[in-house]
């Protein structure tokens, strides 16, 4: 994932900050308790496809 992108993206649901996780790469919203997958460097920021923490 492009480094500059990490600093920009927010949770599509609550628009709050996302935490970047690695191995496997993911973006986590602590307040929504959702984990968004990153596949081959592409963040999948679809609320319906996020996994509950």
């Amino acid at each position: 994932m492009e480094p500059w992108l990490l600093e920009i993206l927010v949770c599509p649901r609550c628009k709050g900050d996302l935490v970047h996780e690695s191995e496997p790469e993911a973006l986590v919203c602590e307040s929504c308790r959702l984990r968004y997958e990153v596949r081959d460097g592409v963040p999948i920021l679809l609320i319906d496809e996020a996994k509950p923490l």
């Binding site: 992108l5 920009i8 649901r13 679809l46």
Partner: peptide
């Protein structure tokens, strides 16, 4: 993404009705 290989471009899977960008 394969077509546009440029460090200034980033691709994201997202819904137009719930965008992951700040205001």
């Amino acid at each position: 993404r394969r077509r546009v290989r440029d460090g200034r471009a980033a691709f994201i899977v997202a819904d137009a009705q719930a965008l992951p960008q700040p205001p």
